[in-house]
């Protein structure tokens, strides 16, 4: 087994372990920290696939910004372990059904997918590099890219409107 494959297995083990720990942890702060670890190991997978740009952006956006906000909110909530009144039997059963259904769907999709065979001689290993990614995005997929940016702009305007202070509203 060469080093890349063994590293892949190590990384996958770590990913799955930390993902399981996200669900299993009693303390929500621990859950968030394990989720950050999961994002890191996913970035490791991207680097193994030679997609360095995706790895860096994954860290910046998810681990660096979104998870900080998650942590932020959870720290303010001050959750105690004895205040778990929301977890009744009904929600537990519903969660099990939903989770099981998603698992069955994903498993079915996985069984149906046929991975395209690739030729190691003609395969372009630089395809995940930022230069080729930029060419791809701005030449072949320009319209979807711009539409996504408009979507983000709309979301930003919405967030600003929600956060805006109404006229006459008290502030301290």
């Amino acid at each position: 087994m060469n080093s890349a494959v063994s590293f892949f297995y190590f990384l996958s083990f770590l990913t799955i372990l930390s993902a399981v720990m996200v669900v299993v942890s009693r303390n929500p702060i621990h859950s968030v920290l394990y989720l950050i670890l999961t994002f890191f190991t996913l970035s490791g997978h991207y680097i193994l696939l030679n997609a360095q740009f995706l790895a860096a952006v994954n860290i910046i956006v998810y681990a660096g910004a979104i998870m900080v906000l998650f942590l932020f909110v959870i720290m303010f909530l001050n959750m105690k372990q004895d205040q778990e009144e929301s977890k009744t039997n009904l929600t537990k059963i519903a969660a099990t059904i939903v989770g099981g259904t998603v698992f069955v769907i994903l498993f079915g999709a996985y069984r149906k997918t046929a991975i395209e065979p690739f030729n190691p001689q003609t395969y372009d290993s630089q395809i995940g590099m930022i230069e080729s990614l930029g060419h791809m995005l701005f030449r072949d997929y320009l319209l979807p890219f711009e539409l996504a940016s408009i979507l983000l702009l709309v979301a930003m305007v919405g967030a600003v409107l929600l956060g805006k202070r109404e006229i006459g509203e008290r502030h301290f």
Binding site: I36, Q52, A56, I60, A63, G64, M129, I130
Partner: peptide, 17 residues
């Protein structure tokens, strides 16, 4: 690395943890 500055930016973003 061809993403050097992004790497720095990512690490800076983690500094808050």
């Amino acid at each position: 690395s061809n993403i050097g500055i992004l790497y720095v930016f990512g690490v800076v973003a983690l500094g808050v943890y």
